[in-house]
Structures are given as C-alpha cells and as structure tokens.
C-alpha cells in the first residue's frame, strides 16, 4: 500500500514536471514517444534531438539502446519531420526504422510530433511530445 502511494506521488510529480521553454529550432530537445505496435524494441522511446545549424542529429533511447538517427530533415512548410535509424534486434539482426510525421502545436514548449514509423518487421503510429 505504502509503495503504491509512493509510486502514485512519483508519477504525479513526473506528470507535473514543467517543460523547458524552447524558442529556437523546434526539434531541439528531449522527447518522450511511443512507436505503437513495435514488438522488436520497447514501443516507449526517448528521443534526444539537436541542431547544429546544418544538420539534425540525435539518438533514440540514449543510455539503453543508443540508436543513432540519420537522414533527419525538417521541412518548415508544414513542419514535416523525417528521420531514420539503424538498430539491431535481440539476435543482432539489422532493423531499419523510418519515421515520418509533422510537428503539432509548434508554439508551445511541449509541442508534439505525430506520424508513423515503419521497419522490415512492422509499422504503426508514432507520437512524441517534447519534455
């Protein structure tokens, strides 16, 4: 019972955590997302993105899976997002993910990316919100 209360308080405090303001490049920052239906990797992902003035770089699940992203683009007309990532499954087989979506609610710090993911093993909806 006590551990349930602690867990509830912890979840509540996480949910209430403020989102850092970000008025620069709209993809920069940490994102929490879901790859619905992904059975190869955990569908819940952390996405860390950066912008150096020329290229968007980043990592999926840094510290756990460490899946580097590549070919990331942002088209400001419609704020269309695309990126890819080369991963391996539990047996070491290559899995290439392709993400396509668009930024929603650009003007707020906890803006979102909504779209789809696909790989050789499946596909589904993808969504993430900036933390």
């Amino acid at each position: 019972m006590r551990s349930l209360m602690v867990l509830t308080v912890l979840i509540g405090s996480l949910a209430a955590a403020p989102v850092a303001a970000q008025e620069g490049h709209p993809l920069k920052g940490s994102w929490l997302g879901t790859m619905a239906g992904n059975t190869v990797h955990n569908p819940d992902v952390v996405l860390v993105l950066d912008w150096d003035g020329k290229a968007i770089t980043g990592m999926i699940n840094p510290g756990t899976d460490n899946i580097a992203i590549r070919n990331a683009t942002l088209n400001p007309q419609g704020w269309v997002v695309h990126f890819e990532a080369d991963a391996k499954d539990a047996k070491g087989q290559a899995v290439t993910y392709v993400f396509d979506g668009r930024i929603e609610n650009l003007h707020v710090p906890n803006r979102g990316i909504v779209g789809t993911w696909k790989s050789q093993r499946g596909n589904g909806d993808f969504k993430a919100s900036r933390q």
Partner: peptide, 16 residues
C-alpha cells in the same frame, strides 16, 4: 539560452 526572444518581433535564435 533559447528560452526568450532576443528582440521585439520574435526573431528566432539558438544557443549559437
């Protein structure tokens, strides 16, 4: 930081 507008009118900037 990138948390503010550095001029009236809202020209964007980055940490660079």
């Amino acid at each position: 930081n990138e948390d503010f507008w550095f001029t009236n009118g809202g020209l964007p900037h980055t940490e660079q």
